[in-house]
Design a protein around this nucleic acid. Structure first.
Lengths: 198, 198
DNA sequence: TTGTATTTTTACAGTGACTGTAATTTTTTG
DNA sequence: CAAAAAATTACAGTCACTGTAAAAATACAA
């Protein structure tokens, strides 16, 4: 109907965005319904109305479908959030606050379902751990920008490892507890316990 | 020459052990020479003098060749070492001492080469992180046996995460430093720094 | 030694993720 | 509208890995 496409997004861009989203949604739903391993690329492509080859034009791997959902929301926001932190507080507390904010946004139905998928398969579990390692690196590098003194680099590494560790601990305790309280509470408690002496 | 096989090991067992070792050694050497991805299973099998199908009679996956070397030495010794610890000292110090002992035994030429391989490939890096996660679980469970009070379980989780974190930190610092001092020194320093207040 | 059970090895025929290539269609742009 | 750029597809291939069933090697008992 509009003969003038909105300047902000061309037909091409819109189609691309829609196709990407359709593949991801279709894939995730099929994973949930039938399991990750049992869902073939061919089936996802067919369901999404594209050829199998085209799938790889949008995603490098099957796993990347899940990374798509992990990525959107958590990992990408980490670096900017830390860079925006006030350099007056101690780094560990700064990172703690950033992570608490992100964790509380993370606790959605979808994330929980995806997490269950990530636990269902050996390779996916490994990828999940790798994501944490990536977050550590991201935190470390961001801290080095906020507090750039070279003699603090080792401290930054330590803070990055401890932060991700406490986040993982909190997430695990939350899971163990069946989600009675908010995930962020458990993460906050873990940080508190860490700081109250090891 | 001996018509009597030694009771301890039958022909079958010896051959099996030898074939397993031959596949692993051949595979590792070919990975080192030509890279992990560029080395096909078929090539390893051919070099080891077996059929491709027989490879999978010994290893479930190609990755398992590397796990074979990781496993022998580190992961398997972890649980018994912690179970043998004196319950008088604090858990964190106990685990620290265990890890320091294992790390000093770990720092061999072969381990370093394997570590380089594990860094060369995305999936392998992920597996490496997964191994650390597995060690955390092993430590946690062992601690729960040594100090079985239910109210200490969360503490044990914390100790497991912190220990593996400090070990990883030490290993990383050692690598960054080009191995001037022993790896165990860096790990020990990391633990010390952790305990001297976060 | 011989026969029989068990284990190991192999060939063969798949499946499924992923890649390279080159042709075709769709969208953009001048 | 024509030419460039991007998206889609078919097709053929590689490689890790699996299922199956038969053959070979080893163990064991009579």
């Amino acid at each position: 109907m509009d003969s003038q496409p909105p300047q902000s997004e061309s037909l091409r861009e819109r189609k691309r965005r829609e196709t990407l989203a359709r593949i991801a949604e279709t894939g995730l739903q099929m994973f949930i319904d039938n399991g990750y391993d049992a869902t073939t690329l061919e089936a996802i492509a067919a369901e999404a109305g594209i050829s199998a080859r085209t799938f790889f034009y949008y995603f490098k791997t099957k796993e990347e479908i899940l990374q798509h959902f992990q990525g959107s929301g958590f990992y990408e926001a980490l670096r900017p959030a830390i860079l925006a932190v006030s350099p007056d507080q101690p780094p560990l507390e700064a990172v703690r606050d950033v992570l608490l904010g992100m964790v509380s946004r993370y606790e959605t139905e979808r994330s929980i379902v995806i997490d269950r998928l990530l636990r269902s398969n050996e390779a996916l579990r490994a990828r999940k751990q790798a994501t944490f390692a990536l977050m550590e690196t991201t935190i470390f590098e961001a801290l080095c920008e906020v507090w750039p003194q070279p003699e603090r680099r080792d401290e930054h590494r330590m803070v990055a490892i401890l932060s991700i560790g406490m986040m993982r601990l909190g997430m695990e305790l939350w899971r163990q507890d069946g989600g009675k309280r908010r995930m962020a509470d458990y993460v906050g408690d873990s940080f508190a316990r860490l700081q109250s002496g090891v």
